[in-house]
Simulated scan of single mutants.
Amino acid sequence: MDLRTPPPDLYGRPRADTFFRFLTAFGDRYSPALGGPLLRRSPRRPFSRPTPALQLVVTARRRAAADVVELTLADPSGGPLPPWQPGAHLRLALPSGRERHYSLCGDPADTAAYRIAVRRLPAGGGGSVEIHDTLHPGTRLTARRPRNGFAFCTEPAVLLLAGGIGITPLLPMVHEARRHGLDWHLVHTGRSAGTLPFADELRALDPHRVHLRTDDEHGGPPTGAELLAHAPRGAAVYCCGPAPMLAAVQRALDGSPAASLHFERFGAAPITDGEPFAVRLGADGPVLDVPADRSALDVLREARPDLAYSCHQGFCGTCEVRLLAGTADHRDRRLTAEQRAAGALLPCVSRAAAGETLVLDVPGASDRPRP
């Protein structure tokens, strides 16, 4: 890939427009509305068919670190898989019906297989536990094609900062940086050596550019300044890790040699500017209060535990519901203006003004007894 060429779109297809201007505008051109007709689309757009799901099979499984399992996924027929770029996610449909996103952590040049790594989270939403307990070689899965919301732009100098399982989107960036001869450095942090996935693989890539840093050997987590001290002057920083790590790097950026910061969170960002509002389940259903510091999705799932979700960041679209009435503050990175105008809403991040009530068509809401 020419370094002057903008990264491809969310699905790995080349495109000619400016990446950062249009990154969030790419998604599904249209999708079936819940229980209704297709969402409207501009008549000037060419008609396009929905992208078919990928059929995958688990071909290998191994322990990558303490409580981390690595899975290799391939086409059951042995054919090549769709191309992808560093930072891409794979949306897996698990046997239980759960849908979860996982960063591809292999080499983008390898089209024979995808690789993901998942840390077991017993107190999570159940997806990681299901993967650890049930996905073994021979298991068949379906998935959406890789989609990218954390694209690597191949700047001449880069610093990659990973916290624990946050190494997964950054490892492909290392492969791409080496392929293009960039001035790159990687810092991988964790509680102890046993918790760092792919440590041996990283050391083998370039021991002089890879820095493994553990809390138990250094008396605690690193500061943002310590992490950014590894940056070449003018470097672009790519960071994926827990919220305290991201916050530390953001605070220290201005005083570092780095020039810019790109990051991906493990989960939803803290709500710092929210107002309390309410959601109603259906036109005449129960009204649920949404506090200023909680998401509508969290409140909805208390009433509808079976409501599907995945990323909590307005990226994947799994939790989409239909807005029947009210004025929403859309904060997602997926829906187009047309989809929003037609009623699509992602409750994981979308909010409303103080005192507003959003009337939502939530799957199965009419089946619940009214208060």
Rank of each mutant, 00 (worst) to 15 (best):
D2Q: 13
P8L: 13
P8F: 07
P14S: 12
A16F: 12
T18W: 09
F22A: 15
L23Q: 15
L23Y: 12
A25H: 15
G27K: 08
R29G: 15
G35P: 12
P37C: 13
L38F: 13
R49G: 10
L56D: 02
T59I: 07
R61G: 06
V69H: 10
E70D: 12
E70M: 04
L71M: 00
L73M: 06
D75N: 07
P76K: 04
S77D: 15
P80I: 02
P83Y: 05
Q85S: 15
L90V: 02
R91I: 11
L92Y: 02
A93P: 03
A93L: 12
P95H: 00
S96R: 04
G97V: 04
Y102H: 04
S103Y: 00
C105H: 00
G106Q: 00
G106N: 01
A109L: 07
D110R: 11
A112R: 10
A113Y: 02
A113M: 00
A113S: 08
Y114E: 02
R119Y: 03
R120M: 02
A123L: 10
G124A: 07
G126K: 03
G127N: 05
H132N: 01
H136K: 09
T142S: 12
R144D: 12
P146L: 06
G149E: 04
C153V: 11
E155W: 12
V158A: 06
V158S: 09
T168R: 09
P169T: 03
L170I: 08
P172Q: 10
V174P: 07
H175D: 12
R178I: 05
H180W: 02
H185E: 09
T189P: 10
R191A: 10
L196Q: 04
D200I: 10
D206T: 07
P207M: 08
R209E: 02
V210W: 01
H211C: 07
L212V: 04
D216W: 00
H218F: 05
G219E: 05
G219A: 02
G219V: 03
G220L: 07
P222S: 12
P222Q: 05
A225G: 05
A231R: 01
P232W: 03
V237S: 00
Y238F: 09
C240M: 06
P242I: 07
P244R: 01
P244V: 08
P257C: 10
L261N: 00
L261F: 05
A268Y: 07
P270Y: 05
T272G: 10
D273I: 02
F277P: 01
G285L: 06
P286C: 06
A292N: 05
R294E: 13
S295K: 05
R301D: 06
R304P: 11
Y309Q: 14
S310T: 11
G317R: 03
C319V: 13
V321I: 14
L323S: 08
L324M: 12
A325Y: 12
A328P: 03
R331G: 09
R333C: 13
Q339G: 09
A342D: 14
A344C: 10
A353W: 03
G355V: 00
V362S: 02
P369F: 11
P371I: 06
